[in-house]
Computed example of a mutant assay.
Amino acid sequence: MTTVATGTGVGPLLRGWREQRKVSQLDLALRADSSARHISFIETGRSRPSEEMILRLAEHLDIPVRERNSLLLAAGYAPQYAQTALDDPSMAALREGIERLLTGYEPYPALVVDGTYTVVAANRGIAMLLDGVPEHLLAPPLNAMRLTLHPQGLAPKIRNLREWRGHLLHQMERQIALARSGPLRELYEEVAGYPVPDSGDPDDREDPHPYPYFALPLRIEHEGHVLSFISSISTFNTPMDVTVAELAIETFLPADPTTVKYLQSHAP
């Protein structure tokens, strides 16, 4: 995993992000309609960038919204992006839209998580998969990664656990490389250290399935039946709020007709 270089001003911070993205000063200058000389002066502190230049460079370096505020503060400017709590009245339309989306996806599972995988909303499809999970793992704040990989959580029910665990850890590694997040790194170290429970054949080789998969499935047991899902993650386009920028909607598409039939027969 990559760690971004830090410093006392905006220059070292921008240099750290540029190096992490593996972009040269010349390439960044061409993208941002500037010059390599100017980029060098900004990074060394010889030139103070304008707000517009900071935001332009941040856009071309794909810097997360939260960190763009940090860059502006380091340069002596006010943050440009608010961080509004989801229960704020101004977020009513967003909350209602998310609820409609999750309810409309039933009986298939869907949930919404924040930047550290804390579950902020989930539908009844998710609730069904959580049958039998100990109460201490369901106590708020519910964390999707902890719940999935904990040896007392969903892990013993996942038939292809080693594959799915590898997928989730790799996903977290990519996020840590994209955004500096101490809490996310701590969560990664916690869940990566969980023992992998012995739930039969770890690679699912002795449980052949009749349907070809077009992506890595989550194969999970529920009341003696093996259900298969393909996961899809969506985020909001061009977010103007830190909270919204860090939300992710994950939907689980049934990967075979058997799973579709089972879920429809168990729909409330």
Rank of each mutant, 00 (worst) to 15 (best):
D27E: 15
L247W: 08
G45Y: 01
K22T: 08
W164D: 01
D256Y: 12
S231Q: 15
P79H: 04
R185A: 15
E189V: 08
Y105F: 15
K157I: 01
D201C: 12
L216P: 02
E96V: 10
I54A: 05
G7Q: 03
T243F: 09
Y105Q: 05
R37Y: 13
Y105D: 11
S231A: 15
R180Y: 00
G115K: 04
L218R: 02
L30A: 07
D27V: 13
V65F: 11
Y194K: 00
E189I: 11
S228D: 11
V196I: 13
R31C: 04
G182E: 15
S34T: 10
G193N: 07
G97W: 02
Y262P: 13
E19C: 04
Q175D: 14
E163N: 05
E163S: 10
N123L: 09
Y77Q: 09
P107R: 14
A267M: 14
H170Q: 12
R66S: 09
L57M: 09
L253M: 10
I39Y: 01
D207N: 13
E135M: 03
V120H: 09
L86A: 02
I63Q: 03
H38I: 07
L169D: 10
R180F: 03
L161W: 06
H266V: 15
E67N: 00
R146I: 01
L247S: 05
E163A: 14
D114C: 08
P79G: 05
A192C: 09
I249D: 05
E99N: 09
V10C: 14
F41M: 07
P197I: 04
T3Q: 09
S228G: 14
R48T: 06
L218A: 05
R146H: 12
Q20R: 08
R31N: 02
R205D: 06
G200K: 08
Q264T: 12
R46P: 04
I54M: 04
G7T: 02
L71M: 06
R174K: 15
Y213L: 11
R100V: 03
L86I: 01
G16P: 06
S47M: 01
E43T: 00
H60T: 02
S70N: 07
H167Y: 12
S50A: 07
L94W: 03
L247H: 08
I39F: 00
D203Q: 12
G115H: 06
R21T: 03
H150F: 03
Y188T: 15
R159F: 10
S24H: 06
P49T: 05
E223D: 15
